[in-house]
Amino acid sequence: MGAEIHGTQKFNESKRTEIKFSEEAMATAKLLMSNYPQGKEKSAIIPILHIAQAEFGGWLSPEAMDYVAEILNIRPIEVFEVASFYTMFHLKPVGKCVFEVCQTSSCWLNGAEDIVKHIEKKLGIRVGETTADGMFTLKVAECLGSCGTAPMLQCGASYHENLTFEKVDRLIADYRTENKQKNYTDLDYKNTL
């Protein structure tokens, strides 16, 4: 694995004062915190980081993590430690649609490597890169629990399963047309092509 970030992070004080959850997001965050016993609100850190990622452009900047620390009344380093542990948190900017193609055993057995190559060719980027228009980021992922419908990729909340080259082409075209940032927290249910 390669960590996205190393060492200390740059912090932008003026940017920090600008960022703020929407009212709806803040209400959800407060509701999530109430799911845990009094004094244990830190439990809500992962769910709230998901919200922060969706609110602030699909990734977690140091300023965004600092803001989450403030909401939870914990030290910023505690947020950084957690955010950098879990693979769903992007600590660097990403495209509007992040394609995470599963590459573990069953997906590999069903052609995941060819799917990745196909996407690379189609988008003109390599794994880990983002298209120049900021529309797509291509990543590989480890087992996403979709082995019976391999090969598959996840984009935001949606699982796209039983992939073929044609399905991938359609998916890219559809997302381009839609031109919208896709988040894990998006409420749309399974999007089966």
Binding site: T8, P62, M65
Partner: peptide, 9 residues
Amino acid sequence: AAEISTYIE
């Protein structure tokens, strides 16, 4: 890839 680090310098 785990490392000791401070937060934001």
